[in-house]
Design a protein around this nucleic acid. Structure first.
Length: 805
RNA sequence: GCCCGGGUGAUGGAAUUGGUAGACAUGACGGACUUAAAAUCCGUUGGCUGAAUAAGCCGUGCCGGUUCGAGUCCGGCCCCGGGCACCA
């Protein structure tokens, strides 16, 4: 009889539910284990089979940790603000809250059908009033710490749609919807000063157990550079133009300067005869789309201002240009150009016939243009002969002593643009009074979204909220307008920045979370999610966490101790699953046909968790087949326990197979190598299948082992073996070292490193004995015969190598 | 261009971290059961030479090195995936 997944899986899920089996207590006597999934955005399309891959992995881990005696926190929730629900609202008039609720109900149903051990009492939703309250509360903490400010920042303005677009809505400089041109226009925005935390966010990475590549990504994103700020005196306006450079050692090769077109000095510096050209250049630059600016191999452009600066090291007068290859947003918005050692400067110098001086002697074989490698300084007066690092140190000291510069550190990281001109987000709890912002007090939170009739943007670039005057206008008792509410809302990142803290204490109405509980549960021990969040989500939430730590609201410096990125599941055709490609595999059908346990082990068996893999229906069938095979080891045609399952003591070979399996899966689970665990189950099942008599206790131990992977099947088998204790909290088995080894082992015999034969020896055989037997073994002997033995190597329990000449 | 990953049978992948390469699974082929099919079970399955489940040679992207021994370590190259991209 086959395993009846429909009946059995439903039966146990109902029981778990009824018994509230996975309700997490805050009982602090036990060691805790906090295992977190990146919570999903509940889209209208529902789940495809790729989404739960990470959830399966965390569920397996969570269930194993429970069995190992840990108090496990494994929650699930919804990142429910976001654009799609708002766009649907614009199209249909359906309130985003309704769309969101429906989508969540569907997601929850789909997730539940896989039999996960989530504590659903801790489910959270970023759009709940009580949740929004604490998101806003954290914003106020940031505000009061001086980390939130308003600024004029360029945004993606689409005149045709009369709306500000998110970056992801802009494709190749055009609007995603309709393909209309998108301009960069400055508008008032809320910013968060993440740059203040650049250094600590960088340093914090060192101790985290994260994938190397993700740490590297974040390091690059933060982009720390060490160098110097150098002052160039401009006689015409009697002011210094400060530049940042990582190569102060090349100062003697600075033959001109370049400022960003937006640099504030441009207007005062430009000579009358250059004014027209400069203004035209500035105008063109502002119209350039992002695409134009990043175009590869593009020609350098620029205009001479007519002004000069003095090179502080040699008093030379050098011209000042403007060009859009210099960015206002990095460093000081101006550079010293050293074409001899910088390719961009070289290209610019060649285009405009500016002088090039090498200050580092290139290596002999060098035949490129700008030379960026190491070498002795040349044409650099007192630096001549010094290697780059030495020269940097010397010139920096010189600059400091002369009062012409200082050591400096720059970051690529920019402040976080925190406002969105949208309806479906957390309102920013600020009122503008007399032109300056004042935050709401804590007691006024949450500030909730008003009902609106239309979800379209206001048309002015403001959010739909701007049209609701009764909400925007804050009045005193006598009806006078005393302030205007902020109409921007927070980005979707806001809610996901701290959700891991809310899970700890999801129902607390007094606080975002209780300190004692936070201290017990934090940090997250294992965080699993897609690599697409490598930078933004993980950097933003680390930033908030660092701030909360500095304010004393959390007890750990970092939120996520260990991070793991699951790889995507691709369609059968090897491309990304998408509706348009028609290669989406639906989990509802999969579970209906093959069962939740089959889907669970298949997704774990596919390969290493972090690798992308194409879906294979035959592979899934193989896993369903395996489950049936295992089922048929227990039951006969009528579903009765087979009589070959008995209390006769297990043979040595079976015990060895059992304990080897326990050892391997225990080790592999710790390393998140789920695929090899499944193959261990298969190996042991194959072994059991060949047995005529099977000891009941062996099977019980086996059932305990498979439980994290196939909890429904395991429960059914557990009950069939007459057990009534709670399998989910059964002790995880230990392996016995003494049972792992057999009496005899097979040793490969190599001659000159080539395997020639193998011999069986007793496990504790002495080296001499093994070597004798190896040399005497038939095949090996023919290769040794007539040769001189130079060396004999024996690696205990593994291999013999006889070196002959 | 720069920074990370990664190249192992027809396919997904194993390999105790320097010690018998290809576990486990999929697919394919052969067999058993069946009137037949499905399901199930039992074999075979890296390549080449061979009648052979005799023996040998080759084989982990390519070239070279270290070592008694290299998928694993070192040097150089090629290809694929991801990220960043005028960041001074």
């Amino acid at each position: 009889m086959n395993y009846d997944h429909k009946t059995i899986e439903q039966k146990w899920q109902d029981k778990w539910n009824k018994d509230q089996l996975y309700k997490t207590s805050d009982d602090q006597d036990k060691l805790k284990y906090y295992i977190l999934d990146m919570f999903p955005y509940p889209s209208g399309a529902g789940l495809h089979v790729g989404h739960p891959k990470g959830y399966i992995a965390t569920d397996v881990t969570a269930r194993m940790k429970m069995m190992q005696g840990f108090n496990v926190l494994h929650p699930m929730g919804w990142d429910a603000f976001g654009l799609p629900a708002e766009q649907f609202a614009i199209k249909t008039g359906t309130h985003p809250a309704i769309t969101t609720k429906n989508n969540i109900d569907n997601f929850r149903r789909q997730i539940k059908m896989l039999g996960f051990s989530y504590d659903w009492d801790r489910e959270i939703n970023t759009t709940d009033d009580e949740y929004v309250k604490w998101t806003q509360w954290i914003f106020l903490q940031l505000y009061h710490k001086g980390l939130a400010y308003e600024a004029e920042v360029p945004v993606n303005w689409c005149p045709e749609l009369k709306a500000v677009l998110a970056n992801e809505e802009v494709v190749d400089g055009k609007s995603d919807i309709g393909g209309h041109p998108v301009l960069r226009v400055p508008m008032r925005q809320w910013m968060l000063k993440i740059t203040d935390y650049a250094e600590t966010l960088l340093a914090g990475l060192d101790d985290l157990d994260w994938p190397h590549s993700i740490k590297e990504l974040q390091r690059n994103w933060i982009g720390r550079s060490e160098g110097a700020n150098v002052d160039f005196y401009i006689p015409a306006i009697k002011e210094n133009l400060t530049v940042f450079t990582t190569r102060p050692d090349t100062l003697f090769g600075a033959t001109y300067m370049v400022m960003a077109p937006e640099h504030p000095f441009v207007k005062t510096l430009v000579k009358p005869e250059q004014k027209d050209a400069v203004n035209q250049y500035i105008d063109n630059a502002s119209k350039k789309s992002d695409l134009d600016r990043t175009e590869l191999n593009k020609e350098k452009t620029g205009v001479f201002l007519g002004a000069h600066a003095i090179n502080p090291v040699n008093g030379e007068e050098i011209p000042i240009w403007i060009s859009d290859y210099v960015l206002m947003s990095y460093g000081t918005g101006a550079i010293m150009a050293v074409p001899g050692q910088d390719q961009r400067d070289w290209d610019f110098a060649k285009t405009f016939n500016l002088p090039i001086i090498r200050t580092v002697k290139p290596s002999e074989e060098f035949d490129g243009e700008a030379y960026t490698g190491d070498g002795p300084a040349i044409n650099s007066a007192f630096l001549d002969g010094l290697q780059v690092e030495e020269a940097k140190a010397k010139i920096t000291n010189w600059l400091v002593n002369e009062g012409k510069g200082e050591k400096a550190i720059q970051y690529k990281l920019r402040d976080w643009l925190f406002s969105r001109q949208r309806y479906w987000g957390e309102p920013i709890p600020v009122i503008h009074q007399d032109g300056s912002p004042s935050p709401l007090s804590e007691s006024e939170l949450p500030l909730l979204l008003p009902e609106v009739e239309k979800y379209e943007p206001a048309g002015t670039g403001e959010s739909p909220l701007a049209n609701i005057s009764e909400w925007v206008e804050v009045k005193d008792e006598s009806g006078n307008i005393v302030g205007l509410r902020e109409t921007n809302t927070m980005p979707q990142w806001a809610g996901s920045c701290w959700y891991y803290l809310r899970y700890i204490d999801p129902k607390n109405s007094e606080k975002g979370w209780d300190e004692a509980k936070e201290k017990y549960w934090m940090p997250v021990d294992l965080y699993v999610g897609g690599a697409e969040h490598a930078v933004l989500h993980l950097l933003y939430s680390r930033f908030w966490h660092h701030v909360l730590y500095d304010l004393g609201h959390v007890s750990t410096k970092e939120p996520f101790q260990k991070l793991f990125n699951q790889g995507m599941i691709l369609g059968q055709d090897g491309t990304k699953m998408s509706k348009s490609r028609g290669n989406v595999v639906n989990p509802d059908e999969t579970v209906d046909t093959f069962g939740a346990d089959a889907m669970r082990i298949y997704e774990m068996f596919m390969g290493p968790l972090d690798k992308a893999k194409p879906w294979s229906t035959t592979g899934l069938q193989g896993c369903a087949r395996f489950i049936n095979k295992l089922w048929n080891i227990f039951f006969d045609e009528d579903g009765k326990l087979l009589s070959k399952i008995n209390n006769e003591s297990a043979d040595k070979e079976t015990l060895r197979a059992l304990h080897q399996m326990i050892k391997k899966i225990s080790d592999n689970l710790d390393q998140l190598h789920f695929n090899t665990c499944v193959s261990e189950f298969m190996i042991f099942t194959n072994h059991l299948q060949s047995q005529n008599s099977i000891n009941k206790d062996v099977l019980k131990t086996f059932v305990v082992c498979i439980n994290p992977f196939m909890p429904h099947l395991a429960e059914e088998l557990w009950a069939s073996l007459g057990e009534s204790t709670e399998l989910s909290y059964e002790n995880w088995p230990f392996y016995e070292e003494s049972l792992l080894e057999s009496d005899t082992i097979t040793i490969a015999v190599q001659v000159n490193g080539k395997r020639r034969s193998e011999i069986n020896v007793s496990t504790n055989a002495k080296e001499d004995e093994v070597l004798e037997k190896a040399k005497a073994s038939e095949k090996a002997a023919t290769f040794i015969e007539g040769k001189e033995i130079v060396k004999e190597i024996y690696v205990k329990g593994r291999i013999v190598n006889i070196v002959v000449r």
